[in-house]
């Protein structure tokens, strides 16, 4: 099948990934420009305590719409991620609601102690919005946030969200602005596809959503991988297989109740995440199943235990078996009881 993905806008004339390209563009879907920035402006108009901060990545994390509307409430602290989070924690202690933007790799690798102590331990009302999750950049190991969800999930008190599309980013931004506590949210930036219907989809912190019901296999996914699990479900239906799609955008707190209720009914699952297969959604699902004593047949779609290559996004998705055809292949493997390795074909 064709995954129906048009990557051209991510690439320059030579077919290489542009550094500052869009997170992802899926043909056939409408797009919204900077859904996070737009939603933050709306939240900022409702609540004057909301501030915008960035560490020299304002242009590339969609926060400039906020900076343009509220210049006096926007602070660029320079290339200093520890200080970005530290200043945000201090601002939160004086009653403000700072939204900080940088990339996943910089927030989690460089500022980990500051998130753990300054935000999570003290429950300060800091929102960390992190771009370039997983394989949404072709810049390789320095820029691809492959283990950020694992790092953030391990911190007590922190809420961790990986939105699917423009609809969810807008709704999640509004929700976390209302929520009193520290949040780490992954960002899809620039022209972001609308996959979930804004008229019917309702994001709620800590709530998984069954987007499509099915009886033979569950496609359980987070972040932009839900775009692909929805496509895979369509392809599987064409092949005569009934696949449910359960979207778990809040990694923490993890919606065990909903996940287990679906898996008890259909204990055969392919978990797909734009992240390492260790420590993220697949691990959370496995933990929940083990704790509940629920036997599962499960395959994992995600990044193997290695730093990824540089390259164009379609190349990377194929290379690391994270594209839609790989999800379909994993479903056939799990139904047949055959191995499906997330490791790349070398």
């Amino acid at each position: 099948m064709s995954p129906g993905v048009n990557w051209r806008l991510n690439m320059d004339k030579r077919g290489q990934t542009t550094a500052m390209g869009v997170s992802e563009l899926v043909e056939g879907y409408p797009v919204v420009s900077a859904p996070f920035g737009q939603a933050l402006v709306t939240a900022g108009q409702r609540n004057e305590k909301i501030l915008g901060l960035t560490a020299d990545l304002g242009k590339y994390t969609d926060i400039l719409p906020f900076a343009e509307v509220f210049p006096e409430r926007f602070f660029n602290v320079g290339m200093a991620e520890q200080n970005l989070i530290g200043i945000a924690a201090g601002l939160a202690r004086t009653g403000f609601i700072p939204f900080c933007t940088t990339y996943c790799v910089f927030a989690t690798r460089r500022a980990y102690d500051f998130i753990a102590i300054g935000c999570a331990l003290s429950r300060t009302n800091v929102k960390i919005i992190a771009g370039l999750p997983g394989l949404t950049t072709g810049y390789g190991g320095t820029h691809q946030g492959i283990e950020d969800l694992a790092l953030m999930r391990a911190i007590p008190n922190l809420t961790v969200i990986d939105p699917c599309d423009a609809t969810e980013i807008a709704q999640a931004t509004a929700a976390i602005a209302e929520y009193d506590g520290p949040v780490y949210m992954r960002l899809l930036r620039a022209r972001v596809p609308v996959v979930l219907d804004p008229a019917t989809y309702r994001f709620k912190i800590g709530k998984a959503r069954l987007l499509r019901d099915g009886t033979e296999v569950v496609l359980l996914s987070t972040g932009l991988m839900t775009q692909r699990t929805l496509e895979a479900a369509v392809e599987l239906a064409r092949q005569g297989l009934s696949a449910a799609v359960l979207h778990v955008s809040t990694l923490k707190p993890f919606d065990r109740e909903t996940v287990l209720s679906v898996l008890e009914r259909v204990p055969c699952v392919v978990v797909a995440e734009n992240h390492a297969t260790t420590g993220g959604l697949a691990s959370a699902v496995a933990d929940a199943a083990i704790d509940a004593g629920l036997p599962l047949r499960m395959k994992r779609i995600g990044i193997p235990d290695e730093f990824c290559e540089c390259g164009s996004l379609p190349h990377l998705a194929q290379r690391y078996k994270m594209d839609t055809p790989s999800i379909v292949a994993a479903v056939h493997a799990v139904l047949a009881g055959k191995p499906f390795s997330p490791a790349p074909v070398t």
Partner: peptide, 13 residues
Amino acid sequence: GQGVGMALGLRLA
């Protein structure tokens, strides 16, 4: 860092 944030916040307020 948190002191900078507090001083900034108090000035804003």
